[in-house]
Structure formats: C-alpha cells, structure tokens
C-alpha cells in the first residue's frame, strides 16, 4: 500500500475500559503500579477518583490501529503524549492521518498524525508515527 497525504484511518480500539483490561496490561507489560488496578491505592494514597489505565496501554492500543492499517513492522518511529487520563468505562477510538511523505534513513516513509479520543471526543493520546511507505 502506498500512502499519500490526506489518507486516513480510524478504529475503535477498546470499549468500556475495565479493571480486567488494565490487569491484563499489567501482566503483559510488567507494570504493576497499583494506581492501575487498586482503587484503594488510587483513591486513598493518590486522591484519584478511581484507578485509571496505563498510558502505555493507550499507546499500545493506538499502535494497534496503526499496525492493522499499515502492517506489523512498518513502524519506524512512534511517539505519543498522554493528554488526558483514561478511566474505567471509557471507549477509545484511534485515528490517523498522513501529513507528509518523504524519506527517513534512506527509506520511503509516511509521517502520520495519530490521536486517540474518548467517547466525549476528548484526546487522550496525541502523537506522530513514521512508517515505511512502499
């Protein structure tokens, strides 16, 4: 697939985030920070209304939108900022749009603006990916 500026893709990447989702991610990533699975700690120690999802889970979900679109190892660079926390019950949609095409390290690539929104249309992840475009 050859990408051109303006090409877009989007996908619902998780529906109704649950403590099961964050627990699965904790086990898979090795990040057992209790803020992501233990409401007692999240509320008592840190003052959050409840647990919230790992930022890196949102990154991984956003990455899934990209690999489903572009193929598993097309990514050359993938960077995100976490702009809002993801809470239990949230449903996330990841979106991408090609903003430029060119070369990177001698390969043809596309630069893609990526973002992930919650059910209120608020961005929880914003970033950019550089992917092989051949």
């Amino acid at each position: 697939m050859t990408l051109k500026v303006g090409d877009k893709h989007e996908a619902v990447v998780i529906e109704k985030v649950s403590r099961t989702h964050t627990t699965k991610y904790a086990g898979a990533s090795g990040d057992y920070n209790p803020l992501h699975h233990d409401d007692g700690v999240a509320q008592g120690l840190a003052g959050y209304p409840s647990i919230f999802a790992h930022g890196m889970l949102s990154m991984g979900l956003t990455g899934r939108m990209l690999t489903d679109w572009l193929g598993p190892v097309a990514l050359r660079k993938f960077g995100v900022r976490f702009t809002r926390q993801v809470w239990p019950g949230d449903t996330l949609t990841s979106k991408g749009e090609v903003i430029s095409v060119g070369e990177y390290n001698g390969e043809p690539v596309a630069t893609i603006k990526v973002w992930t929104e919650n059910q209120n249309g608020e961005a929880v992840v914003e970033g950019e990916a550089v992917a092989l475009n051949a």
Partner: peptide
C-alpha cells in the same frame, strides 16, 4: 492485552508466511 487480532502476533507459521523470523513485537 492490546487487542491485536492479526495472527502474525500469535501463530509462528503465520508470522513466517508474512516474512518475519518469528512473532514480531507489537508496538509498545
């Protein structure tokens, strides 16, 4: 945990058929 359904992340034969040495790392 990140919801992938592409068989290349689960099935070694599918990964090899797609040109990978073995199961590739998902993003992140």
């Amino acid at each position: 945990a990140t919801g992938h359904t592409d068989p290349v992340y689960y099935d070694v034969d599918a990964a090899k058929a797609a040109g990978y040495r073995d199961l590739p790392c998902p993003p992140g």
